[in-house]
Design a protein around this nucleic acid. Structure first.
Lengths: 208, 208
DNA sequence: AGCTTCGATAAACACCGTTCAATATGCTGA
DNA sequence: TCAGCATATTGAACGGTGTTTATCGAAGCT
């Protein structure tokens, strides 16, 4: 039943946008009265939260396709941002819920459930750390580098999703984004491995 | 009168947030009835739009303090992002209106008034172009590099403003952001000037 | 004084999220 | 088979929202 509500809600979010999706409409879409929904969700933002969880499950699945591909640390690092951007542009409504919408953050705070997104962040941090250890990135503050990478791709995604890129011709947008990401990557050059053979071997093996 | 409405609205936005600021409350704050407001603004989002314009005026003023300081292209480039971030963190509600909120973008689209933000973007692009010509940045696609820089700082600002950084201890947040920006800057190294003396002279003089 | 003009009002409309007493439904035990 | 119970659902209500519009009142002009 929670499932039915969620999928009806997401359906309406996609077609009408969140603000125009009322509890009454969600209820009508599944043939119920508004009050019924409150037996399954405490309030409207609880539905948002449930969908946001689904979104993180999807994103997690996508990012973990990086595991076991026999990729070098540098390849993993570069693919990570690409996958993140792909998720954002293929699921803009999910992305909005997960990383932009105010109400989601408010609900997360209310529930104190930060771990949903934290897993994903830990994964990114681990990739950055590995990349540094492997010489695929200049060494430095892991926390800051992780945040810098995340901010960069989130910035691109959220500017596009929230329609702030109208100065770029729509048909050129995707290539500008791709080019900007390439620029960001090129700007973070691979260094000489710190301790070449053992480190790379260890990383390769543990990444199996 | 429009001024009085705007400042009352901004006052309430600051204290209560946009969603909880109703036309009725704005009207009450200046001693009018709700209907009166509609003699001065077509709808609620027109107030948003007016405030967003003020925000861009402020930001423009701040960024143009870079002019005439006798700064090198590289310094201008680095300071640009710092000023942008400063604006965002000192005026988070303005920033939200200008670069994150959905309804602002919708209203801009409705009015077809993209030039407000375009001036600012042109300024950033010009700084990037100058930096490349001056060898303060690796040369390459100006459009992509501008977007990459903007996305990077916007990403940091919007993640913080929309409360997505709870995995970073609050008291460490500002240093992580600063460190991440330094990382981004360090990752975009200055190159040898393309045509050193004449070019630098020209830039210096025109920047007066 | 009469007339016009125009800003402000009050009331209404159609929504919204949310609550809750009342009811319908389906299941259990006798 | 039927009473009783528990649970799922309803429908109406509350207080709010953005927005529209007929009406009013005061000021300005002839």
């Amino acid at each position: 039943m929670r499932e039915r509500i969620c999928s009806a809600a997401m359906d309406l979010f996609l077609r009408e946008g969140f603000e125009r999706t009322s509890i009454r409409r969600i209820a009508a879409a599944i043939g119920y009265t508004p009050g019924a929904i409150y037996s399954y969700f405490g309030d409207k933002d609880d539905i948002l939260y449930a969908i946001h969880e689904q979104g993180f499950a999807r994103l997690g699945l996508l990012l973990h396709t990086l595991d076991g591909g026999g990729l070098s640390a540098r390849e993993r690092f570069e693919r990570l941002g690409e996958l993140y951007l792909r998720f954002a542009f293929e699921n803009p409504q999910y992305y909005d819920l997960m990383f932009i919408k105010d109400r989601t953050a408010k609900k997360i705070e209310e529930l104190g459930q930060w771990d949903v997104g934290l897993d994903t962040y830990d994964f990114v941090r681990a990739v950055v750390r590995e990349s540094m250890r492997d010489g695929a990135l200049p060494t430095g503050d892991v926390e800051a580098a992780t945040f810098a990478l995340w901010a960069s791709v989130h910035g691109m995604a959220s500017l596009v999703i929230r329609s702030r890129c109208k100065m770029i011709p729509p048909d050129a947008l995707s290539t500008v984004v791709a080019e900007a990401y390439r620029w960001t990557m090129r700007a973070m050059p691979a260094q000489e491995p710190a301790h070449p053979p053992r480190a790379r071997g260890r990383v390769r093996r543990s990444g199996r």
